[in-house]
């Protein structure tokens, strides 16, 4: 757990890495890990994961088309737009 690691997770989360702040974040993560460590007490090898408490299955819809949004509404919310599209920084592929 070092500054390089903080920089790494910042890059994954697309958040600015702040060198000065990184010690504080390291402390937070360490405390969090101590917290998580508590769960190691419990043997969960035979326990199935539980994501949705209701464990419902097979919620699906019929393949039917409904109206989409008007394009001008989509563009009104977009900070940058051009030619009916949403504009972003140049992407080099």
């Amino acid at each position: 757990m070092d500054k390089g690691y903080i920089e790494y997770i910042c890059s994954l989360a697309k958040l600015e890495y702040d060198e000065e702040n990184s010690d504080r974040i390291i402390e937070k993560i360490k405390a969090f890990d101590v917290y998580a460590e508590k769960l190691a007490d419990i043997d969960t090898n035979d326990i199935k994961p539980l994501v949705n408490v209701n464990e419902t299955i097979n919620v699906m819809r019929e393949d039917a088309v409904m109206p989409s949004l008007e394009r001008n509404i989509i563009l009104e919310n977009a900070p940058e737009k051009l030619y009916g599209c949403i504009k972003v920084s140049k992407i080099i592929e």
Partner: peptide
């Protein structure tokens, strides 16, 4: 006919940003 997780039209060649 429609997209995977919403009811927008699944169609190639529509005018840009009209099936959203």
């Amino acid at each position: 006919k429609s997209k995977a997780f919403c009811s927008c039209k699944n169609e190639f060649g529509s005018e840009v940003n009209t099936n959203c």
